[in-house]
């Protein structure tokens, strides 16, 4: 492996050795390589530059380039670990790792907290939750009176915001999700268990000499 994947590295900036990525994540080397097949397809859907842009991410999620989606944008920003405006393969694998069924539950809770703490203040504020709720209603073409939205927010904050300071801190979030485990469903992708079956072509494109499983 002296000149390890130099061609791949040129074509895919930020591409990392699958063996190293596997050692840092819950994925096996084969699974990392299968994820690379998925990455190749997403990152070449608009511009074939080996990186996933926001537009390509949205296209992969919604299968069309429709209107901006607050939540897809937020996920994209969290995946864009290096804050470059694009997702490279290393970012992609490490971020998806949090969604692996075997990933530590604390990592999932931490990711979900950052997801909802949109302005990164260390708190999930009522105003942020209202903004997300309105975005959700808009996306699903559901109409609720502002009064009803406020009732939902009151109820939610009465339950989650234990010290009643109008914002949810990390400890309160931990407490809240442990009482409402269904909130963590979005943080686990069972698909990640079958990734090698979904993308079997990784076998033909393998960069490692022997695939350890």
């Amino acid at each position: 492996m002296g000149c390890f994947n130099s061609k791949v590295r040129k074509q895919f900036p930020g591409h990392e050795n699958p063996v190293i990525l596997a050692s840092q994540t819950a994925f096996s080397v084969s699974e990392v390589e299968a994820l690379f097949e998925l990455f190749k397809s997403i990152s070449s859907s608009v511009i074939d530059d080996g990186l996933i842009s926001k537009e390509e991410f949205q296209l992969a999620l919604f299968k069309n380039r429709k209107k901006e989606n607050l939540f897809a944008n937020r996920i994209f920003d969290l995946f864009d670990v290096k804050r470059k405006g694009v997702i490279d393969f290393g970012d992609f694998v490490r971020s998806l790792n949090v969604f692996h069924p075997n990933a530590p539950f604390e990592d999932k809770i931490e990711f979900s907290f950052r997801l909802y703490d949109m302005d990164s203040t260390g708190f999930i504020e009522r105003q942020e939750v209202k903004q997300m709720l309105i975005a959700l209603l808009c996306e699903s073409e559901m109409r609720l009176a502002d009064e009803t939205i406020e009732i939902i927010l009151d109820k939610t904050f009465l339950d989650a915001d234990v010290n009643q300071d109008g914002k949810i801190d990390k400890a309160e979030w931990l407490n809240f999700v442990s009482r409402n485990p269904s909130l963590m469903k979005i943080m686990t992708l069972t698909y990640l268990r079958d990734i090698t079956t979904t993308f079997p072509s990784f076998v033909f494109n393998s960069e490692v000499e022997e695939i350890a499983t």
Binding site: L61, K63, N69, Y116, S140, Y191, I195
Partner: peptide, 25 residues
């Protein structure tokens, strides 16, 4: 009808948070 779901339960139904769509070929 009374709304029984909390705000986060509603939010978690967003399509933008459903990453399983990434795996549909």
């Amino acid at each position: 009808r009374p709304v029984t779901m909390n705000a986060f339960e509603l939010i978690s139904h967003s399509q933008g948070l459903n990453l399983s769509n990434l795996f549909d070929k």
